[in-house]
């Protein structure tokens, strides 16, 4: 780790001013990803601005019945919050499916959105990686890529976004609020992550020096669920996950939200599947057809075609569970 200076910010304006849009400076939240990457040599900031004491740790119900979640709310507080559990169960479940109790106590909402891929080539600085070192190449395409992307990737990078929380936030149409020295701004989560293309090192549309201040969720169907598959039963990153919310009336899908995790460089909103489902009978055949509509765009590599089957099966299973849950109530 290289030496760095450290300052604590106590208000949002001050934090943004301290960072001063300096490319050699980083905001320090829970540190669960940043400190890890600094030890690995992937990140070498010259300055850290600690934002853990900013007054951004609240969760409030908005006027339209949605939620506004402060950027420094910890994963644990988010998952345990009664309004999150009541209105956005999939978000609570997604957070609880991620990391460990210790990490969830440290990690923050803003940091979660900004966490970097866990691709083994990215985290090993002796390896080429276009995301870490633009132009150096992507060894994963021909190498180890069992957990690489099947959607929206490019020959320049096939890494997946590791977040569980983000998958639920994508399904719930989250909007990210931020602050820069110029003032406040907003980005829909759908626009938050940039396409991979030939610039995998450019990950988000946040302006330079921006501090994420909050994530806002509009109202959503009350029945929602998150399912995650991984290579051990807990404390592992996803190899495939689904966040879904479903509203069915008279056997017909009225509203549906569907997002996939561990399939792309960002939490993947399954718009094609949603379009196929709206107005369709809430039945296994529709769920399968919807998954197929989404996954038709999948471009698997030599060793990760299983993800297409996995996501198809997960989609059907989760939507079926939601539908049965609705029938039972």
């Amino acid at each position: 780790m290289k030496e760095f200076s450290y300052r604590r910010a106590t208000d949002v304006e001050g934090a943004v001013a301290l960072l001063d849009a300096d490319p050699g400076a980083r905001f320090l939240g829970g540190g669960t990803n940043l400190v890890d990457l600094m030890k690995a040599g992937v990140e070498s900031p010259e300055r850290l601005v600690d934002i853990r004491e900013l007054p951004l740790d609240g969760i409030e119900v908005t006027g339209d019945g949605g939620l506004r979640i402060g950027a420094t709310v910890t994963n644990s507080d988010l998952a345990a919050h009664p309004e999150v559990r009541r209105r956005y169960a999939a978000l609570s479940q997604a957070v609880l499916a991620g990391a460990s109790g210790q990490l969830r106590n440290m990690a923050t909402v803003g940091g979660n959105l900004l966490q970097r891929t866990r691709c083994g080539y990215f985290t090993d600085i002796s390896s080429p990686c276009n995301k870490r070192e633009p132009g150096s190449g992507c060894p994963a395409v021909e190498g180890e890529h069992r957990n690489a992307a099947i959607l929206g990737a490019s020959g320049h990078c096939v890494a997946v976004h590791p977040s569980d929380m983000g998958v639920a936030l994508a399904a719930f149409d989250a909007v990210v609020s931020y602050r820069t020295q110029e003032g406040e701004g907003e980005l829909a989560l759908a626009d938050f992550y940039l396409p991979v293309g030939d610039t995998p090192h450019r990950e988000t549309a946040l302006p330079p020096g921006a501090l994420i201040t909050a994530v806002t969720l509009p109202p959503a169907p009350v029945r929602s669920r998150y399912r995650k598959v991984r290579e051990r039963a807990s404390y592992a990153f996803a190899i495939g996950s689904v966040a879904a919310a479903l509203d069915v009336r008279d056997g017909v899908v009225q509203d549906v939200r569907l997002a996939y995790g561990a399939v792309a460089s960002r939490p993947w909103r399954a718009r094609a599947a949603e379009a196929a489902l709206l107005g369709a009978p809430a039945a296994a055949a529709s769920f399968a057809a919807a998954a197929d509509a989404e996954l038709a765009a999948a471009v698997p590599l030599a060793d990760n075609a299983y993800k297409v089957t996995l996501l198809r099966n997960l989609t059907i299973a989760v939507l079926t569970e939601l539908q049965q849950e609705g029938t039972a109530r």
């Binding site: 450290y6 540190g31 890890d36 600690d50 210790q102």
Partner: peptide, 19 residues
């Protein structure tokens, strides 16, 4: 490296002492 910070379990390897 788990310990308790303000009563909550945390990982001390990912926390800077200064923080």
């Amino acid at each position: 490296c788990t310990l308790l910070v303000d009563g909550r379990r945390s990982l001390s390897c990912l926390q800077l002492a200064v923080a």
